[in-house]
Amino acid sequence: MDIRIAAYAVIIRDGEILLSHWNEHGRSGWTLPGGGIEGTEHPAAAVVREVFEETGYDAEVDRLLGIDTMVVPAAKRISGDAPLYGMRVVYRAHVTGGELRNEVGGSSDEARWFPLDEVSSLKLVSLVEIALQLDADEPANGVPGGGRWERSRERR
């Protein structure tokens, strides 16, 4: 089994959320700014780096919201021949500077602010709904879904 650890930011201001459009290998959807941790990088440092890379904004982490995990079966992976265990560390963050721009040469191709009441009409990556629920619930143990988890939740 392969393992991928990534960090993502929920950034909401003035009733809008900052999203990044993931577009890779023929798959796409709106997601949170964020991505894979590099080397020995701490997830909090990774999310700040990823927000800048994908949106052009400098960001600061406010707090850890939670950690979501999933298993992607080998047959559903874009690349790789083994199942993938994904750990997604989700933070609440805020913009401290910079200017909105799109990533060039990465896995995302657009960054945009959306009114929160329009998010449900977008083609979303599942992480967005999970992260918004974490942001609303702020579970003490950081586990989505009221503190319960399934041993091997698979991406469907």
Results as ranks from 00 to 15, higher is better:
residue 145 G to C: 02
residue 123 K to V: 12
residue 135 D to R: 03
residue 108 S to Y: 14
residue 101 R to F: 04
residue 134 L to Q: 03
residue 122 L to W: 01
residue 111 A to D: 12
residue 124 L to H: 00
residue 107 S to H: 13
residue 126 S to C: 04
residue 125 V to T: 09
residue 124 L to C: 02
residue 135 D to V: 01
residue 108 S to N: 13
residue 142 G to V: 00
residue 108 S to I: 07
residue 138 E to S: 13
residue 123 K to N: 09
residue 98 G to S: 06
residue 121 S to N: 14
residue 143 V to C: 00
residue 110 E to L: 15
residue 97 G to Q: 04
residue 134 L to A: 06
residue 111 A to H: 12
residue 117 D to H: 12
residue 142 G to K: 02
residue 135 D to T: 01
residue 117 D to L: 01
residue 105 G to A: 06
residue 114 F to D: 09
residue 106 G to A: 10
residue 142 G to E: 00
residue 102 N to C: 04
residue 126 S to T: 14
residue 125 V to R: 14
residue 122 L to C: 05
residue 113 W to C: 07
residue 109 D to R: 11
residue 112 R to I: 03
residue 101 R to C: 08
residue 101 R to V: 02
residue 110 E to K: 15
residue 138 E to I: 12
residue 116 L to A: 07
residue 107 S to Y: 13
residue 138 E to V: 15
residue 103 E to S: 12
residue 109 D to M: 07
residue 112 R to V: 02
residue 144 P to H: 02
residue 139 P to Q: 03
residue 135 D to S: 08
residue 118 E to R: 15
residue 136 A to M: 11
residue 138 E to Y: 10
residue 143 V to Y: 00
residue 138 E to K: 15
residue 134 L to S: 05
residue 104 V to K: 11
residue 138 E to N: 12
residue 103 E to F: 10
residue 103 E to G: 02
residue 98 G to T: 06
residue 120 S to C: 09
residue 106 G to M: 12
residue 124 L to E: 06
residue 143 V to R: 00
residue 98 G to K: 05
residue 104 V to S: 12
residue 139 P to W: 06
residue 115 P to I: 11
residue 117 D to N: 14
residue 143 V to I: 15
residue 130 I to M: 04
residue 143 V to K: 00
residue 131 A to V: 05
residue 120 S to P: 02
residue 128 V to D: 06
residue 138 E to A: 15
